[in-house]
Design a protein around this nucleic acid. Sequence first.
DNA 1: TAGATTGTTAATCGATTAACAATC
DNA 2: TAGATTGTTAATCGATTAACAATC
Lengths: 229, 229
Amino acid sequence: MSFGDVATKAGGGGSPEDGGLGPLGDRLSLGVAARLSRYLQVLTQARKMGKETISSQELSEYTHVNSTQIRRDLSGFGKFGKRGVGYNVDSLVSQIRKILRTSGQHNIALFGAGHLGKAIASSDIFADHGFRVVAVFDQDPAKIGEQVGPATVRHVDDLKSVVEEEDIVVGVLAVPTAAAQELADKLVDAGVKIIFNYSEALLQVPPEVTVHTSSPAVDLLYALYFYLT
Amino acid sequence: MSFGDVATKAGGGGSPEDGGLGPLGDRLSLGVAARLSRYLQVLTQARKMGKETISSQELSEYTHVNSTQIRRDLSGFGKFGKRGVGYNVDSLVSQIRKILRTSGQHNIALFGAGHLGKAIASSDIFADHGFRVVAVFDQDPAKIGEQVGPATVRHVDDLKSVVEEEDIVVGVLAVPTAAAQELADKLVDAGVKIIFNYSEALLQVPPEVTVHTSSPAVDLLYALYFYLT
DNA sequence: TAGATTGTTAATCGATTAACAATC
DNA sequence: TAGATTGTTAATCGATTAACAATC
């Protein structure tokens, strides 16, 4: 359970006008949305590796979600698979993107041009899913103008105008814990509604803003528990 | 749902001999273990900030877990709180660590001395929870001997002996996707049972080994869905 | 005392899964 | 055809929550 605070309704049945695509009019439940995102990650990587079809069993091995549940999740939106064969990877990627409404490009502002910031900017872990780092900010004047991944480091004072110009929907904080809250405040002030926090700070934001705090140590603690018992 | 594949039994009731600490003899359910880990993260940070007590309501705000459920989770193991006051942060940290059996130190081997590896080694996101990076490996001969965080970069050929000498229980892969599977194989061969994967590779490992793949983009997709709808 | 917050009950709701017919 | 895998049902199980008495 490493997802942000996002209100939801249970997804009822589809209306007659939803074109056979299931309950697209309703919001997905938290669990379904989380699992679909996960399937998408595996499918994206499977496609990179040249895989053309994939079975619910294979998807299950990589996502650790029960294969029956995978079929159930998918069949709620249409008959995407072929019996005896599996699912076409390419087409399933498109379908899930459609369901999650994340087919387009989404722009990210990255804060912190240290090791972590550079790692994020040069990785394609975001790029593969349509997220583009279009702006990088750092407090250190010496770093302004430096090239980090595809972007040039700017001063935080430019934040508000950059958010508007570049249509930024997500702010990623790769800064020391002590600097995080102040930047979160500035992001909120600039109208950004999704904050991805790589620091350890416990961020305080208005209810309409979603904070996701990355917590690898939590995941490790959890894995370790089942290893130790 | 970003946790690894870990078998479990539902946690039954505590036995009369469990010293009032609840069902410590049984395995926690997946959900309870995940949530306790999460509480621990927030409590650890709250303690750093000098907070002495915390209410289930406050914990709820930071973890996005319902406050009733937090009280329920905790009361299953003992009466840790004080009515009208809340929970003592220090003592709750100890209690949860006891329940999760992660009071001790656990040693990590880190692979990849690039930006991400350096960010991980110098962060205290792991250190705060008793994880210590005791060995760093890199394929690049030029990096051997370099100091990364508290450790010196070594050659992967030394892996097996280092795992034994340093009692390493977790391997963290901060390497390019193409290099990940080979290192995973070597970790499995050396007897490591928990692999933390920061690459995009879909790792294949024996069933007794747990792989956790970090997937910030998945979390973003998920957050974005609820933002867009 | 008055206010706050825990611990716990009881009811509901959604997630999970085994099983299997349908069908590629 | 024979084997594989989906789509779907029906039953179960665990998670979630509102409500409130207990008590600091």
